[in-house]
Amino acid sequence: MEILKIVITSLYVSLTATFIASFFALVFGMFFLTKQFKLKDLFIKLFDSFTAMPPVLMGLLVFLLLSKNGPLGKYNLLFTPFAMILAQTLLVFPIIFTLMVKQIDKNALRIQKTCYMLGGRYKDFLTLILKECKNEIMTAVTSGFSRAISEVGAVMMVGGNIKGYTRVMTTFIALETSKGNFKGAVLVGVILLCISFIVNAILYNLKGREPNEYLY
């Protein structure tokens, strides 16, 4: 029963974080892809370097933000699933954003110009780019989810690994390993691997196949 709760919490935290990060990555991504402004390259490089952010550092930053003396301390959010979602969202947003922007960038302008030339408006362009770049977007989302579900440092720091509340699969594995309970750790490790595989397979299937993929 404990393991089921852990699995549910893991999925809840990671899927929510991936969803929120994907939403914002899409909104900002569309802005970056369609607008030309001076510091655009600098911003993309900046987000690119954030993809290598160590989870424990992100954990520390969110910890400081939510701790009693921090700016959001009065809301008592530390050691809650919310804190874990916040940390993971901030951690995976740069990954999803940069992957999305880099992969879509080569076609976005051409799609935009084709759409506008045919008489489409901004909403038509958005619909079109979402359809045209579905694969690229799903690849970015899949990478973001993989990072979120496998992350341990940040959720440990801001979630506190509280049994039945903020304990997730990765923090459970870390704890059980330190206690010498390898059997439990391996069991949850296998579950984690299976869940990652299933979720990635679902996302991969949502991507669909490239039209020319099996021609040669």
Partner: peptide, 17 residues
Amino acid sequence: YILNMSALDNIVLGLKY
């Protein structure tokens, strides 16, 4: 830039717009 849809959908897209 040819869109990832049927040839017909490509051709009529502008008319739909």
